[in-house]
Design a binder for these strands. Structure first.
Lengths: 193, 193
DNA sequence: ATTGTGTGTCAACAGTTGTTGGCATACGGT
DNA sequence: ACCGTATGCCAACAACTGTTGACACACAAT
């Protein structure tokens, strides 16, 4: 247990730790959990594989550190209710293009139970919490968040993992105009029954 | 090259071949490409690992045979244009629940380039072709198909791979009523610009 | 009955994987 | 200057992987 809140003295090996983490994220994002070998990650970071073990304990531990992630969802309270969908899809697209951690998590979640569990946590906790801030019916909140997750993850999967050409080629603005209404409906529409 | 159209004499080992294929689909669907080992598949099929190699050449060859898949999309021409979304989501849900091949392909596509290529082929060819049967604007057809794929694959990913509780718990009928309008819009809405 | 071919098992190979322990060196505090 | 500790590399292990070849048996045709 290293104290994460305490401002620990900066260690001399911080640069190495950071290099490992950066290489790990790249490899996990590009190859998935099992194909991303510790040896390859260490080579990218230009250090010995045994260093990875010393600093992160195991491959699982390294992944846990590399896949640390926060959706950084904005506060949705001040957003005009009619623009919720647009704000959300814009945020997600920006978050995705700028940080490969999510792609790493997405690829790994397909085969690694721990990664899937973390993915579940992120979208169940963070997204559900954000939806709950303006939601009226608590019984529907979880389902709304799940539906939003299904479209968001589907977009990420087709754009960054499978790389479906028509989705890869689409400019971000066009994706926004197509998908925003979908999220909007998932978030706010009141079902008939 | 075994003639696939010719009614070849039934081989004595057909039962074994089928057992291997069934076990392979199960393992690939449950574990993904790299974690599904030939030894485990052979054990499930209660035969020797070397038989897998003899009948399917390699692990890649086995996967190619096990992931053979057809979306079996219905002819959309006679469908009332306003009900296209509903027909599609119903078809996909039924196709998914009844055949684990698609889940195997989905899990493997995250890490295996060949599987991703096949996934691209299925959704680019079969789905785009179906969309084209009623589509008006050819330039938009591919994008419409891609958007539909993003929602369909996102649903499958959250329901069968990551297993997001609110999506797993949702009865199929409810998913239909939420997602049908999304597909409907992706398929038929005319963009403003 | 004998031959040939298809079906199956066994043992082993070569490579890769995560992981470990030992050893050298450089640093920071005294 | 000295010493403890942190940092790094090297070599190796044990387990597992896909894959291969040799060998035993069963069946069908002649």
């Amino acid at each position: 247990m290293t104290a994460s809140t305490q401002p620990t003295h900066p260690r001399r090996s911080d640069a190495t730790r950071a290099a490992i983490l950066r290489a790990a994220r790249e490899r996990f994002a590009a190859d998935g959990y099992e194909r991303a070998t510790i040896r390859a990650i260490a080579a990218d970071a230009q250090i010995d594989p045994s260093m990875v073990m010393r600093y992160y304990g195991s491959k699982e531990g390294l992944f846990a550190a590399a896949a640390e992630f926060d959706l950084r969802l904005p506060d949705l309270a001040p957003v005009p209710p009619a623009r919720l969908g647009e704000v959300l899809i814009r945020h997600f697209l920006a978050r995705w293009e700028g940080d490969e951690t999510l792609v790493a998590l997405l690829r790994a979640a397909s085969t690694n139970p721990g990664a899937a569990e973390r993915m579940r946590g992120i979208f169940a906790d963070q997204l559900t919490a954000a939806v709950a801030t303006f939601g009226s019916d608590p019984a529907l909140t979880a389902r709304r968040a799940g539906l939003v997750a299904s479209q968001i993850l589907g977009l990420a999967f087709t754009r960054y993992v499978v790389r479906l050409p028509p989705i890869v080629d689409a400019p971000a603005e066009e994706l926004v105009s197509w998908i925003a209404p979908t999220l909007q409906r998932y978030l706010t529409e009141v079902p008939e029954n």
